[in-house]
């Protein structure tokens, strides 16, 4: 949380995504106000904010679903372009393709990217292994539980090695024990593949558990209120005093403005 902390963190890192002066207005209503931040290559960044902070708008802007009023988003130094860059998403509502089997779901994104067949097969095998769904490869999403379906979506998104993976509370509705299990799995995948992940959540404990760095959004009109480096070793324990202190700190930050 100190300035030294932050510069030490950033010194060794390469910028992957650079957001400058991001502003979004709906008519006269200012939702996002001059947001500036960088996402570093291979980082697991968490973004938290109070309820109603324009989180969805923020996400949609990052993913280029909606036009930005002002500001720029650069990936690898050039403006973000859907033809060159891959930005993948995992939403809270599970969106596995219902008419494809688990393995075909994973193949789907890879085929769209027109990768060579043998590379596709290699990646499908690897992803199935990492998420532990090899046994279920020929199942259809309806035959799986909600958490398993969510893992199919995660596998599909990680398989294409996206420039940036945006995740919007993918585990929101699941019970806490399952959530921790899946979060551990997420971190395993992330570490193995070295993907750049931006994980957006209202759940502060989740953010402290997962993140290397946390960005705190203010209420509408949202700006980046604060940036917190999470310098705790893995595996993290929710009852570790340092963990608790950090969690309390972020909670207070969000509550008070």
């Amino acid at each position: 949380m100190t300035a030294d902390n932050k510069s030490a963190y950033k010194a060794k890192r390469e910028v992957k995504v650079s957001v400058k002066n991001l502003t979004k207005k709906y008519g006269d209503l200012l939702v996002l106000d001059n947001i500036n931040f960088d996402i570093y290559k291979g980082e697991l960044l968490c973004i938290v904010g109070p309820t109603g902070c324009g989180k969805t708008t923020f996400l949609n802007c990052l993913s280029r679903f909606i036009p930005i009023t002002e500001g720029t988003i650069d990936v690898d130094g050039v403006p973000a372009d859907p033809h060159i860059h891959n930005i993948a998403f995992v939403f809270q509502e599970v969106s596995a393709i219902p008419w494809l089997t688990v393995e075909d779901n994973i193949r789907f994104g890879l085929r769209i990217k027109r990768l060579p067949e043998d590379e596709i097969e290699k990646r499908v095998e690897r992803m199935l292994d990492i998420v532990g769904l090899t046994k279920y490869r020929t199942y259809y999403p309806q035959q799986l539980s909600a958490s398993m379906e969510q893992r199919v979506v995660i596998a599909r998104n990680f398989a294409i090695n996206p420039d940036l993976l945006l995740m919007d509370e993918p585990y929101g509705q699941l019970d806490v024990k399952l959530r921790y299990y899946l979060e551990d799995e997420l971190m395993r995948i992330w570490k193995e593949l070295g993907s750049t992940v931006a994980f957006i959540t209202h759940n502060i404990e989740e953010a402290v558990y997962l993140a290397e760095r946390i960005l705190i959004l203010s209420p509408k009109p949202s700006t980046i209120k604060e940036e917190v480096i999470v310098d705790l070793p893995h595996p993290r324990q929710f009852d570790d005093p340092k963990f608790v202190a950090l969690r309390d700190y972020v909670t207070e930050s969000i509550k008070w403005w």
């Binding site: 539980s145 958490s147 019970d175 024990k177 399952l178 299990y181 929710f238 009852d239």
Partner: peptide, 18 residues
């Protein structure tokens, strides 16, 4: 701390369902 201790205990008592 008491809350967290209890939470850990109860977490061990609950089943993990994938």
């Amino acid at each position: 701390p008491d809350f967290l201790t209890l939470r850990k205990q109860i977490s061990e008592d609950t089943d993990l369902v994938l």
